[in-house]
């Protein structure tokens, strides 16, 4: 089987971002909490690959540590969304047409009614800024996404013969959901998780940009962009590199998601 180029590029970009973030726990070229003002706003060079910011911090190191914050927030937020959304979706599908289904889906509509980033801003503005609250804010708008995808895919499975067979064999709805339905929607969920992951990174950058995400002294991509924008004519590298980091990570995750979907979709596979 041939892997699509989208999948390869996407996986490479995503792995690079995750790899740099993981590496930043053990090593960065410079300490990002140490400010050396004398070395401020230096253009990219052999010492500072991405240049330095207005406090003399190494932008490459900041991008590495910023990746950690973005990925951690987005990953946990996807976890929150999937952890709550998938069971809700499975339950709604198992009780399709019942009051539980109605309740879950209408609650989803309620969350969907708010633009996701505005909702996140509202939540962090209420709870106070910080990485933890950003996770909650982004996680909340992930819940209905997972719930819907799960319910939609699970609904058709409930009419399939193997599920009927399981019911005849006397298995309960919960057991059937876990043993027969979930494995068959897992592919779809992984693809969805990748997409939500990239949206989460964008959302985290947006929250940090308005000052509601990760707090100083920890760097984050969004706040770097915010700080860089008044210096864009003086020190363009300060804005360009965190911006590129966001673009490439989001692009990578989207390509990865597309690639995984193609891989799991028999129709596309056959066409190739």
């Amino acid at each position: 089987m041939r892997l699509s180029p989208a999948l390869v590029i996407g996986a490479a970009l995503s792995l690079t971002a995750v790899g740099l973030a993981a590496l930043s726990f053990f090593w960065t070229p410079y300490d990002v909490t140490r400010l050396t003002v004398a070395a401020r706003l230096q253009p990219p060079s052999a010492q500072h690959w991405f240049g330095t910011d207005h406090f003399g911090r190494d932008i490459f190191s900041m991008v590495m540590v910023g990746a950690r914050a973005s990925i951690a927030v987005a990953l946990v937020a996807v976890g929150v969304g999937a952890g709550l959304g998938v069971p809700l979706g499975l339950a709604a599908a198992a009780r399709r047409g019942g009051w539980l289904d109605e309740l879950v889906m209408r609650l989803n509509d309620l969350i969907f009614a708010f633009p996701s980033l505005l909702l996140a801003i509202m939540i962090t503005a209420t709870l106070g800024p910080g990485a933890f609250n950003a996770v909650i804010a982004i996680g909340i708008f992930n819940i209905p996404v997972f719930a819907r995808v799960t319910r939609g895919a699970a609904l058709s499975l409930w009419t399939r013969d193997f599920v009927l067979a399981a019911r005849v064999a006397g298995k309960g709805a919960a057991r059937i959901s876990v043993e027969h339905v979930l494995p068959n929607v897992a592919n779809l969920l992984i693809v969805q998780a990748t997409i939500q992951f990239s949206l989460g990174i964008l959302a985290e950058a947006g929250l940090s940009y308005v000052g509601l995400g990760v707090q100083p002294p920890m760097p984050s991509w969004g706040r770097m962009l915010n700080e860089a924008q008044t210096m864009i004519y003086v020190a363009p590298w300060f804005a360009i590199f965190p911006g590129l980091a966001i673009v490439l990570t989001v692009l990578g995750l989207n390509l990865l998601g597309d690639g995984l979907r193609d891989l799991s979709d028999p129709k596309v596979r056959r066409a190739r």
């Binding site: 140490r34 400010l35 003002v37 207005h54 406090f55 100083p216 002294p217």
Partner: peptide
């Protein structure tokens, strides 16, 4: 805001 980040780093 900027001075605060510097002061925090210096006191750290």
């Amino acid at each position: 805001r900027r001075g605060g980040e510097l002061v925090a780093a210096q006191l750290r």
